[in-house]
Nucleic acid binder design. Structure first.
Lengths: 201, 201
DNA sequence: AATTACATTGAATGAAGTTTCAACCAATTA
DNA sequence: TAATTGGTTGAAACTTCATTCAATGTAATT
């Protein structure tokens, strides 16, 4: 035998991680089709060939990222829903955290942008599209449920809960995309502006 | 001489119009780089060659569309600002019209989406980028001015006017993008949800 | 009917990327 | 130190498109 297994596994895991992270950066910025394999490879100072040692194609990387994005998003939603907070606290907390996330330029923010970008484009792999169609509704449903709860105790406005959930997520997505363009210069707005759409005064 | 000039001019104008309109559709849906010249050509049942009779390149079409998009958008903003309405009426009107626009799937809606898409991507021609950077602030400024007016007469909430304008446009963009994905199924939310971010109760 | 001015076609060209693959290298174990 | 395993390279083969261009079609004018 040669190098021990753990060592190799570690190298492998790290490379995969590097590739995913850089790819995420480019996909979020330029979209799938405008991102070249060489963008990713040269940003990591590795050969293009190596990327194909880890992934079959550009699209496979993309699809894996979309999968992870929804896993994290949905996990966060499940977590939020299960917290011992009032509906009002949950929504206020979610908006605050999401805005905070957008200000930092980290993977978490890019995942969010990736979803927004991917959702906006028809030019994505079929598998990724399927994931989006399957998973995208969950976060909308969670927010709608929380809002419905809040309407029962009178702390939320009485617009249609689904419409409110729609506006919740599309507003966040709109901000994510704005941030993608203006990058550094972006400063998140006061969370209270957004919460005022939902809360009874 | 051959065909009369007017006739030729008419054919030319019509073709240009057709090409622009189809290109707008594809760019809005898939982005610049994922849109092939053959997508446009075959959707119009013309040869690829013919497109090059009218435009130098993919990018030229894109850039012209971006220019037109901002012309229209900015013209609408100028118009809005000059109307004899209160600030509150202006914002309410703008939101209503924008939401109405989104429900119809027409060029006007696609222009809006094009800007959102283009703004979100770094993979666009330098000239188009320049237009975006130059023109994109205007609509934000107009809305910010109207909001500032509304704050003076006490009908608007007192958050930072620039932040409110930011949320105004990013919320609309977020909805535009959502609509792009879900197309038919999209139903615009109650305009009052959005206005409640701005108006004093 | 012949001429002319353009619109239009589609095959050829070339550039830009993606993907494959044979050879190379680095580290561990025997 | 030799053998081995598997990560890594980069040039070559392939694909996919964008773009060009020589040839063709067409309708008005003479």
């Amino acid at each position: 035998m040669a190098r021990n297994k753990d060592m190799n596994q570690k190298i492998k895991d790290e490379r995969r991680e590097q590739i995913l992270s850089k790819a995420l950066m480019f996909y979020a910025k330029k979209g799938l089709s405008a991102t070249k394999i060489t963008d990713i490879a040269s940003a990591l100072s590795i050969s293009q060939g190596l990327i194909y040692h880890y992934y079959r194609s550009k699209e496979e990387i993309f699809t894996e990222l979309i999968g992870t994005a929804f896993e994290r998003m949905n996990e966060a939603c499940r977590w939020l829903e299960s917290q011992p907070m009032t509906a009002k606290e949950k929504i206020a907390f979610a908006i605050q955290e999401l805005l905070k996330l957008l200000e930092k330029d980290e993977d978490a923010a890019r995942y969010h942008l990736l979803i927004a970008q991917a959702a906006a484009s028809e030019a994505i792999p079929g598998e990724a599209k399927a994931i989006i169609e399957k998973e995208n509704t969950f976060s909308y449903e969670v927010i709608a449920r929380i809002i419905t709860d809040g309407q029962k105790d009178g702390s939320f406005k009485n617009y249609d809960a689904k419409e409110l959930a729609l506006v919740f997520w599309t507003s966040i997505n709109g901000l994510a995309i704005y941030k993608a363009v203006h990058g550094e210069k972006f400063k998140a707005p006061d969370a209270a502006i957004l919460t005022s759409m939902f809360f009874q005064e």
